[in-house]
Amino acid sequence: MAIDRETTPSEITTLVGREVYSNNGVFVGEIEDLRLDLNAESVTGLALHQLNHELFDQETRSSRGVIVPYRWVQAVGDVVIINEIVERMQTPDSESAEPDAEGEMRA
Rank of each mutant, 00 (worst) to 15 (best):
P99T: 00
V66M: 03
P92T: 05
P69F: 03
T44W: 08
L48M: 09
V68Y: 02
D4W: 11
E87M: 05
M105V: 00
P69C: 02
G65Y: 07
D4Y: 13
V86W: 00
V28L: 10
T13R: 11
V68S: 04
D78E: 10
I82A: 03
R61A: 14
A101H: 00
T91D: 04
E6M: 04
T8S: 05
P9Y: 05
A2I: 05
A40V: 08
L51Q: 12
P99R: 01
R71S: 08
E19D: 10
P99M: 01
D33Q: 11
N39R: 12
L38C: 13
E41M: 05
L15W: 14
A97S: 13
I31P: 10
E59C: 06
F27P: 00
E30R: 11
L36W: 02
E19V: 04
S10L: 13
R88I: 12
V76R: 10
L51K: 08
R64G: 07
G77Y: 15
H49R: 12
V20E: 15
L48A: 10
A97I: 03
R35Y: 12
A97W: 01
I82N: 04
L46V: 15
E98P: 00
Q74V: 11
V66A: 01
R18F: 03
N83T: 07
R35S: 06
D93C: 11
E41W: 03
Q90P: 07
V28W: 13
V80R: 12
N39S: 10
R18L: 12
L55F: 05
F27H: 01
I67P: 00
L51C: 09
T14H: 10
E87L: 05
V76G: 14
V66T: 07
A2R: 07
Q74R: 05
S96A: 15
V66I: 14
Y70R: 06
Y70D: 04
T44R: 06
P9A: 09
H53Y: 08
I3M: 02
A47P: 04
W72L: 14
M105S: 00
S94E: 14
S63N: 14
E95V: 13
M105L: 11
D33W: 07
W72R: 12
I81R: 02
E6N: 08
E98M: 00
I31F: 11
L48F: 07
V80N: 14
G45H: 13
E30F: 04
V66C: 02
V79W: 09
P99N: 01
T91H: 07
N52K: 09
P69T: 03
V73T: 07
I3D: 05
V16N: 08
Q90R: 09
I82K: 06
G17L: 06
S10T: 10
I85E: 03
T8L: 04
R106F: 00
D37I: 03
A101M: 01
M1Q: 14
I12M: 08
Q50D: 04
R71D: 10
E54M: 10
L55T: 08
G103A: 01
L34S: 14
